[in-house]
Each structure stands twice: as structure tokens, then as C-alpha cells.
Design a protein around this nucleic acid. Structure first.
Lengths: 345, 345
DNA sequence: CGGGCAAGGTATACCGCTTTACATCGCGCG
DNA sequence: CGCGCGATGTAAAGCGGTATACCTTGCCCG
């Protein structure tokens, strides 16, 4: 049925057709001098005619490596699919990669197979660089890529060590978020996270605490427990006196605004909610989510650029991208009246 | 900074350490006979010790190809990200692929670059097979992969021609959906689609029409126009007398149930909504969406199995997977009372 | 006791491309 | 008029494996 109808065309065929040696063809396709413009044109024409392109694998074997990026995501199908961030990331990576002719190799793994996969992909030379996401403090992958000698960059908060990072500047965002809420009269705000172990979660905690302290706000931290019978009720029960929450995950924020009213907590009248990410999800939630938009696509672009330079052996340094913006929609509102709050301020 | 600390280990090093020839190592790693169990063990030990694995590219060059699947998605970042289907697909592909040691190469392209990318990837031997999604009637890719001689399978409705398909059995699902609605008193139902050109959309149309005819229901078809100022209002205005809709896309269904009440159409009291896909999105929508769950992961698994056999040159035939199930939640309810409807039946 | 054969390995020719060293040729210049 | 050199190419040696042909042994058997 799907017999290879035509024998695969090789560089030799192109050379023959153009009346030159294979080396000449190779030279042309690698932008090397040593070939006159006239013959270069003939060669390109021949290649076009035969519809030939240099074999990816062969190039790799003969030194010309560095053309594929590995992305290993250690999440369950469930949580991977629930986070629109990954879609944005994938979409964002794809464009700059194809621009420089790189392939993207993607896989999902379970946490305990993670290092194994990095080892394998690198050992096989299946990929030439790694992009690390969901980095934890003290993440074993940092030492691993270093040991392997694999070019790598991480997306998220910088961590100690040699792995270069692409970070979204959050600092002023927290100031902005907290200010938005204090402006509405909120005096106790809690951050909600679903991934307490991640490095960027910790970084956010710090940023949030500082912003809260500066403004005399009571800062709380609550972890989302997806396995509770009613995760929203569970969370709301642990909120203490907070009248506003800032939720790391947009989907969780959406779940909260959808379900809270059903268990007697009106949003935003009794509880204001800010999502720390933004996507189309914010627009199907009711009330619409006040959210921060993150420059995911730009982070992706930056990371790709970084990795390309790393692969070429150039020196690189950590990058930060900015562009978080608060999108005020309907899930935030003036704080409810409570006696003790009124006394202060 | 990221200097390759260690010279890359090759098959020769392993052979040396194990005291055999490279051929022997190769034989062991390709499950060929001709090596005694004893030496095989020594060889594996040596490979382990050096942490060696056969170089992906080299294998390809020397015949042992067939280890990467290309997935080219011709969608804008926007619509790609909005469709949880793709997340499920990616997650679903990843597991069976890694099980057989295949890589997944992913990219998003604009529609007009699509064929170009297939040509390139195949020409470069970057991938050894393609999985086609979003197939249109008369899709040029069908002829293209045939011409290239590239193993390919498509996800969705079968189309004429040699490209083998993996299809979700929809027939009885329509019966079930229509019956669910007629049971609630609905007599005019409209299908809503956002992708009128796709082959599987057409197949669904047919299935729906048949199911509707068999039950004496007025079947309508409406196309979603995302660029209208208010797409939901626009759609609702074109519904005619339909009291229930079946929406191809879950996100659109979610948008409808979120926004319809805001423009005076209560769901489900005035309009029942069924989503033709299911994911976590259904659970953050209010009312919760009555939806069909599709066996995406199983489709992915089946497609991978198919492609593997194709690559090995074995004969394959189209597969269908079943497992659609109606999840009745809150977006469907008894049809509103209308005079003419009451007269009939 | 010699021949034949299976079992266990090895030598070697690629695979398709890159790359470096080397060959040619035309031409300017002393 | 002959030499040197820049401009163009080409030959050939890998890259890291795979695969096929071929070579040893040891041993069974007539």
C-alpha cells in the first residue's frame, strides 16, 4: 500500500544532475564559499528539481548536529491537559524553532522516569538541547544536564547553578496585584498554589510576601488539594480571614469561581479572585476572571534563542522577559464589610 | 560553561570494554542471534557502565530508520490552544510512542505552509511517518503523503484513497444524543460546528441527519463564526426553532452556556446544549455541560500501533475505536413549551 | 578419524552527508 | 614568458552505527 514508490534521492543524485561532485552540493547547502555563484544556482536548481534536502540524520552523524530541542514534561495526562500554559508554550516554541530549522521532540513522563529519559535522549543524540520546565528547588535535572554536558535552559525562576534561565519578571506584577486589591479595600490576601515544590512557586511566594508587607497586608499561602472530595470547599475552609486570593493556576481559579457560589461563597462579593495566568479559560468563566497575562510566547522565543546560542557554544546569560499585565475583569470587587477591617486603615 | 565534559561514548568504546567487536555490540542491541547469552550479558554490562545507547541519527543513516512520528498541526496558536482535544491527543500519543522508543516531532504551521513542511520533514528524513489530523475532504495531504511514499494515518473520518484511518465510531452516539434530547421533548435540534470543511465534520453531519430522520426530528446545521462581534448572539440568532444544539467543540459549548444567559437565553431552560467532546472544561462551565466523551487516548494508541506496522511494511487496515459515552450533566433539560411542538407527536 | 555443520564472532562494506586536504586552472605580474 | 596565487572544485576520510559475508571452533557422526 505505502510502498516507497521512488528510491530516496541523495546528494549524489543532485550532484550528478548538476554535473558536479557531492562535495560541491554540500558546500552550497552549508553556505560555505568555494563555489561560484553560477554553479551554486545550478546546484540549487537541481536540488529543487529532485526535491532534495539534506538528510537530517546524516548531517547529525557527520558533525552538523544541533537541530533538535527536547521537551520532557513530567506531568500526568490529567494535569498536563488542564493547564493551558502548556498549549501556549508549545505553540510559542514551535514558531521560533521552525524559523531556525529545529525539530521539537516532546514527551510526557512520570516523575520517576524523568532523569532516565533525559539520559536516553541525550545518549542517543536524539536531541541537542533541553528546555526544562516545572523546575523544583534542588531539581536533580540541573546536575544531570550539567553532568551530561547537555545545553539546557530553564523556564521559570532562576536557580543556583550553571543552568541558564528565562524568567518572567514578576516583581512589579505582585505590587500591581496587591495594589489593585488594597485599592478595593482588601487587607488579607492569600496566594493559592497547586505546585508548592516548584522553584518559581517559591519565587512567587517571596514576591508576594514582599508586596504584601510593603502595603501592610496580611499575606497567606494555601495549597490546593485536588484530591479532596470537594477541593474548593476544602480550600475555602483554609482561607482564614482572607477576602481575596491570587491563584497560580488559571484552571483552578476557574473552578473556584464556578463552584464557590454553590457552597455559599459569592464571587466577587465575598471573595475576590485573581488568576496568575490568562488564556481563553478566563473568558468562559463567570464571573470573568481578573487575571495576569504572562508573555509565554516571548519566553518561548527567548528560550529558543538562548538554546541556539548555547548549542553553538556561545556564552549566554540568564534572561528576563517582562510583559505581565493585569487584566481587570469581574472576579475582583470591593472587600466585604467586616468589623475589624473597618477599624483599621 | 556547558562544554561537553566527556567525549561522547561510541559503540567502539563499549566493544573495547566488553572485549568484543563493535558488530557484536550492535547485534546484541538489535536483538539479533549470533551472540551467546554470556557475552550478551557482558556487553550489556559494559554499555550500562559507560551509559551508552545507540546513536539515534547513526541508526537512521544505516538503515535502521523508523523511529519518529511527525505531527503537523495547521492551526493558529489561538485555535490550537483553545481546543483541549490537542492536549489529550499529545498526551495520548506520548505514552505509546515512548513505549516503542519513537520520538514525536511536533509543529504548528499556517495552512499555506503545510505541504511544504511535510515535504521538508520527509525529505530530510526527520520523521518516518505522519499522523494527519484535521483532514478535509479532498485534502491535498492525502495525495502528498502518497506521492512521497510516506507512511501515514489519519485521525477522523475515513476518506477515499489509500491513507488508512483511525475513526471514532460515532453512529450510535448520535442515536444516543438525539434520543436523550427527544426523551426530553425536543423536536428540533441543530448541530453547531466551527470547522465546516473537515472530513469528520461532514461525517458527523451525515450521522446526525440520519439519527434525526429516524426519530422524526428537525435537523439543523449552523456554523460558528468566531469573528462576529458577539459570536454567541450571532449563532443563537440563526438557530431557527431549534430548542437544543449539539456543539462540535467543547470550548464553544462552554462559551455558549456562559454567555447565552447574558443575552436572554437561559440554559438549559430555553436551550439545551450538548458538547461533542469532553474534558475538564465541561466541569468549569455552569451549567455543567452534558457531553460526549471521546476515546482520544485510545485513538492515539491505535494510530501509533498502525503507524508502527506501516513503517515496518506490514499491511494494515482502517481501524475504528469505540467508547463514546454520553455524560448527562446540567446543560440539557426538557424542551420549553411551544404551541406547534405540542400539537405534534 | 576426517568431514560437515551449527554456534559464535569478526571483518568490512556501506548509509548519506560533512569536511579537510589536495588538484586545477586562469590570470596578473615581475 | 614563467611563476604564484586566488578561485573553484574534487577526492577521500570520517561520523557512529548496521548488516552481510565470512571465518573459527568444537563437536557429532559415519
Amino acid at each position: 500500500m505505502t510502498e516507497p514508490t521512488t528510491k530516496r534521492v541523495t546528494i549524489a543524485a543532485v550532484a550528478r544532475l548538476a554535473g558536479v561532485s557531492p562535495s560541491a552540493v554540500s558546500h552550497v547547502f552549508n553556505g560555505r564559499p568555494n563555489v561560484s555563484e553560477a554553479t551554486a544556482i545550478r546546484i540549487r536548481a537541481a536540488a529543487d528539481e529532485l526535491n532534495w534536502r539534506p538528510n537530517f540524520a546524516s548531517r547529525k552523524v557527520s558533525g552538523q548536529g544541533g537541530r533538535s530541542l527536547g521537551l520532557v514534561i513530567a506531568r500526568s495526562r490529567e494535569t498536563f491537559g488542564r493547564d493551558p500554559f502548556f498549549m501556549r508554550l508549545l505553540a510559542g516554541l514551535t514558531e521560533p524553532l521552525s524559523r531556525i530549522g529545529w525539530a521539537l521532540s516532546l514527551t510526557l513522563v512520570q516523575a520517576d522516569e524523568e532523569e532516565q529519559v533525559y539520559r536516553q535522549w541525550w545518549g542517543e543524540q536524539r536531541v541537542d538541547a533541553f528546555l526544562l520546565v516545572d523546575v523544583r528547588d534542588d531539581d536533580p535535572r540541573l546536575a544531570l544536564v550539567e553532568q551530561l554536558g547537555a545545553p539546557a535552559a530553564l523556564l521559570g525562576a532562576p536557580v543556583p547553578g550553571p543552568v541558564v534561565s528565562v524568567t518572567v519578571r514578576d516583581g512589579s506584577a505582585f505590587a500591581e496585584a496587591v495594589e489593585h486589591l488594597t485599592g478595593l479595600g482588601h487587607r488579607a490576601i492569600t496566594r493559592v498554589t497547586d505546585a508548592p515544590g516548584l522553584a518559581h512557586t517559591r519565587a512567587r511566594d517571596r514576591g508576594f510576601r514582599r508586596a504584601a508587607r510593603d502595603r501592610g497586608v496580611v499575606a497567606g499561602l494555601a495549597v490546593w488539594h485536588p484530591d479532596a472530595e470537594d477541593p474548593v470547599a476544602d480550600l475555602l475552609g483554609r482561607l482564614g480571614g482572607a477576602t481575596a486570593i491570587i491563584v497560580d493556576s488559571e484552571t483552578i481559579a476557574a473552578e473556584i469561581v464556578a463552584h464557590a457560589p454553590e457552597i455559599g461563597v459569592r464571587v466577587p462579593e465575598q471573595l475576590s479572585v485573581i488568576a496568575w495566568e490568562d488564556s481563553w479559560v478566563s473568558s468562559i468563566a463567570r464571573p470573568r476572571l481578573t487575571a495576569f497575562d504572562a508573555p509565554v510566547e516571548e519566553s518561548a522565543r527567548t528560550a529558543v534563542a538562548l538554546l541556539e546560542r548555547l548549542v553553538r557554544g556561545e556564552a549566554v546569560e540568564a534572561q528576563t522577559v517582562s510583559g505581565r499585565r493585569l487584566l481587570v475583569r469581574e472576579s475582583t470587587a470591593p472587600a466585604p464589610h467586616t468589623h475589624d477591617r473597618e477599624d483599621r486603615s
